[in-house]
Every structure is written in structure tokens, then in C-alpha cells.
């Protein structure tokens, strides 16, 4: 074992779930986190909605990996419903974005920081 990569107690950890499941769970957590960070940081409204899709992706990955762990297909069925909601959300949100763009001629979310009549 390569000791140079380990620091301190790092060498002695054990996983609570099988390794393939833990990798899938780890990237599902990472995709969810990156989605949150993107939603908070980006100022383009379309990219903000794209980041919510990133969060959906992370949630779907967690569902499928738990479905693999428990050997139960309900997790995969739930991902199909996530897909449905994502499609509906994309259609509505993008329609709203186009409406907002027509009002202010910009995609900058900060243009709407003061609520009220335009």
C-alpha cells in the first residue's frame, strides 16, 4: 500500500457500504453540491436552472445506487418520476425565462433583485 497518500488515521478507514455504491454516492453528493454552488453563484437565469438539473442528477444517482444496494427496483421507478418532474419543470421554467427576458432584455438575475412592477 502506498503510504505517501495517507495522512494520520486515513489508512484505517472502512466503508459503510460496498465500494461501488460508495463511489456512486460520493459523486451523487458532489453533483448535488456543485448544483447548489452553481445556483448560488451564477447570475445567468438559464444557467441557474441548469444547476437545478444538476441537483436532480445527483438525487437520481443516489436513488439508483440505493436501489442497487437494496436490490429493489422502486428506486429506479422513482428516478422515472424525477425525469417527469424535471421535464415539466424545464418546460415551465424556460417559458418563464423567455417571458422575463422579453421584459428586461437581459438574462441577469440581478435585474430582478428589486421586486415590483417593471
Amino acid at each position: 500500500m502506498n503510504a505517501a497518500l495517507d495522512i494520520g488515521v486515513a489508512s484505517g478507514f472502512t466503508l459503510a457500504v460496498p465500494a461501488e455504491i460508495s463511489i456512486a454516492l460520493m459523486i451523487s453528493a458532489l453533483l448535488f453540491t456543485l448544483g447548489i454552488i452553481g445556483f448560488l453563484c451564477r447570475r445567468n437565469m438559464i444557467i441557474m436552472f441548469l444547476c437545478t438539473e444538476l441537483m436532480f442528477q445527483g438525487a437520481a444517482l443516489a436513488m439508483v445506487s440505493f436501489s442497487r444496494m437494496r436490490m429493489d427496483v422502486s428506486g429506479q421507478v422513482f428516478v422515472i418520476f424525477i425525469l417527469t418532474v424535471a421535464a415539466a419543470e424545464a418546460a415551465l421554467a424556460l417559458g418563464l425565462v423567455v417571458l422575463l427576458y422579453r421584459r428586461r432584455e437581459t438574462l441577469n438575475a440581478d435585474a430582478w433583485s428589486e421586486l415590483g412592477e417593471s
Binding site: 478507514f13 466503508l15 455504491i21 453528493a29 458532489l30 453540491t33 447548489i36 454552488i37 448560488l40
Partner: peptide
Amino acid sequence: IQREPASAVIAGFVILAVLGGSVFR
């Protein structure tokens, strides 16, 4: 130009540390 990148990244990675820590025993 992004909005508040440092605080967003800190908030996000605190969530990641909690979520990802759950795969370890």
C-alpha cells in the same frame, strides 16, 4: 463575474462533507 463565490463554495462543501461522510463507517 460570479456572485459571492467564496461563501457559496464554503456552504456547498460543508454540505458535501456531511453528505459524503455518510459512506464511511
